[in-house]
Design a protein around this nucleic acid. Structure first.
Lengths: 387, 387
DNA sequence: ACTTCTCCTGCAAACCTTTGCAGCCAACGG
DNA sequence: CCGTTGGCTGCAAAGGTTTGCAGGAGAAGT
């Protein structure tokens, strides 16, 4: 039913190869002929069959995008940007949601491998070894993690976490908590390392809690534990958890930011809409999506466009040919969920760096539970410095 | 580099056609041979090349999914469900974001047409005529709109809007406002029709405002106008607008729900997280995604699975072969953004159905603007009953 | 023993393009 | 006038798979 190259050839009285060239190498065909062919093609509604083309050229003009969880509001802006960038370069995007299920992920990549020219992998929990194996099957670009030998685009959450901690200590907080994310996440490790370092540099203590599921529920569930640490400020693995935490703190009778400050990471759209509005570390998700497709596509020659967008980029490696790592800067956006710490309101006896009684700093309504913190605030765990 | 059918044939000492049959028609090949072939294939890591297969069978096992705006939180759950359902049936999903740009949409469909077996269209503003033209090029299922002759899955927002209005009038509100969505949206028309009818039935007045962009910003911007209508309760086209509206009302000094009640539509995840939590009409987006791929796939024989999921479904048409319309039920979820209306607190003089002075019902702090409403609250516009 | 049937397998065409190679023609230099 | 060049076009192979058709082997029926 749909017109093929042969129909066009017949209609315009030339050989199919001429029609083919009209589309894929226009300079090789006489302008007059070309116009005639073009006219016929237009008239017949002809579009080259990409599958057939792929069969012979080996290039499908498709990109796979594997996402851990589409419904996580962190991802849609990334997807959107990747799709847009891809389309602009005449590529289409296959999308796949793995539901964080490693088995599904492997199947997926295999199934996709033949149909795409490359895959963008955005799946924090997948094992490194599997990724390496996969990368032998199809060009891969990983997002928000680092795998030796593979091109990657990461967001510099370490820097962001440092900024956040500095912001907090600057406000006078000495007892910090870090609401950790899922085990095995590169981002999580990065945040933890940077946060502990920054806390130590500011002579503040930092309790790290986790691992936790990176969801609103994960935040809600940890509210009680956070309170027990006695921290007056907490940095969460992502905005979703931060928001859940605020929710949980609220039902414990703790006010944000008066009693406790909360900062998230990601700056998802939602964070502007909570009350109080969430202070958070903005990650350039859209830029990451664009950059990732650029990296994938620059590898295969075809596209000559030089990657030049997404400001604030720091190329960490040689731009030669392979395994570039692009790190995108983050920034702290201060809204209403952070406020001055206890040290600012009164210069109490006892140096700030030592652990006080939990809750002593906050004049919160008592709340239903009155337990003292079991072990007091623990010091930062410095052993995680090695990547 | 990747193993082809020929490699497997050579390795297992059979003809390629036997290998082919081993995968696509196993019952035609001797079990013994089959196992040998399977073993070789496994060993070589062979996977049938879907492009080559598509070339000859004409079936790509791909589905296109065209979305107006991926970043709109309404869509991700739909995408996720569609992707999952598709994969379960051994289909992959091409995703495309049109940015609400009609020109992009057309290109997209054309480009996709050859690469997919069908397209799910989720793009409220696209013109009907274009859709019809497209449907001649590739099987289409439209979501949340109705195009004569095309299979569709819609969410029954009309019913939801009715429920919402009844909820509001039941609380004693007599002055309602409807914060309309974008022009040309089927959903918008449906809501409007049902809401006006329900308001009339309850003898309440309803002012419809719009069209507006279906975003948070659209809601914020309309806060002042909403207040001018004097309405004590408002139904918004979607949750995003409702949330924006609450934001705007707040900065006007109006409290929700004490001064004014707000209800949204969609029940996006965000709505559980705002303060106050948003009362809203829950639409079964995930079920819609699943159902849509089922409809698309049941058309082409191959899959024999009977569509039987997504409870609460009402089939509006014959299940014969073509142009079925599936309507999914919605339900009202009552949270904290709606409260009793002024009629409940004091039985003022003047029948409820007539327009009072705007703001008279609310003891709000004055706020910066003191204009009386220009035309007072207008009556419902009944001319939009025809679809 | 001969036909008929069933089961399995091989053959080759077909799907729609791309692309290296060769051929044609006109123009041009000598 | 001949040889060369350059611009354009046709030819045919190739890419990986499916599938109608035919053939072969053995079993079953007569």
């Amino acid at each position: 039913m749909p017109a093929t190259i042969r129909d066009v050839a017949r209609a315009s009285g030339v050989h199919i190869s001429t029609v083919s060239r009209t589309f894929s190498a226009p300079h090789l065909v006489n302008p007059e002929t070309r116009n005639r062919v073009l006219a016929c093609a237009e008239h017949l509604g002809y579009r080259p069959n990409r599958a057939a083309r792929a069969l012979i050229t080996g290039r499908t003009h498709n990109i796979g995008l594997i996402i851990a969880d589409i419904a996580n509001p962190f991802f849609p802006p990334l997807i959107k940007a990747a799709e847009s960038q891809a389309r602009q370069r005449d590529y289409h995007i296959f999308i796949a949601d793995t539901n964080e299920d490693p088995a599904a992920e492997e199947d997926l990549v295999h199934a996709l491998a033949k149909q795409v020219d490359g895959v963008l992998l955005c799946s924090p929990r997948m094992s490194n070894s599997l990724i390496e194996q996969l990368s032998r099957e199809v060009p891969l670009v990983v997002i928000n993690r680092q795998v030796t030998g593979l091109p990657a685009v990461v967001m510099d959450v370490g820097q962001g976490a440092r900024l956040a901690v500095e912001h907090l200590t600057g406000l006078g907080h000495r007892e910090l908590a870090l609401l950790g994310g899922p085990r095995g996440s590169w981002t999580n490790r990065e945040i933890r390392r940077a946060a502990t370092a920054a806390a130590r540099a500011a002579d503040a203590s930092l309790t790290v809690l986790g691992p936790n599921p990176p969801t609103e529920g994960g935040g809600i569930a940890m509210a009680e534990q956070v309170r027990r640490t006695g921290a007056t400020a907490v940095l969460a693995y992502n905005d979703l958890m931060a928001i859940g935490l605020m929710e949980g703190l609220d039902s414990l009778g703790l006010r944000v930011p008066q009693d406790i400050s909360v900062v998230g990471i990601d700056d998802i759209a939602l964070s502007r809409l909570t009350r109080p509005k969430l202070t958070t570390v903005a990650t350039p998700t859209a830029a990451a999506g664009r950059t990732a497709v650029d990296m994938l596509l620059q590898h295969d020659g075809s596209s000559t466009a030089r990657a030049g967008r997404g400001g604030g980029r720091t190329s960490t490696a040689d731009d030669r040919r392979t395994t570039a790592q692009v790190s995108l800067q983050t920034e702290l956006v201060i809204r209403d969920s952070t406020g001055v710490g206890p040290a600012a309101s009164a210069d109490r006896p006892g140096t700030a760096a030592t652990a006080d009684r939990p809750g002593a700093a906050s004049p919160a309504r008592p709340g239903p539970h009155g337990h003292p913190a079991p072990g007091g605030a623990t010091a930062a765990t410095p052993e995680s410095v090695a990547s």
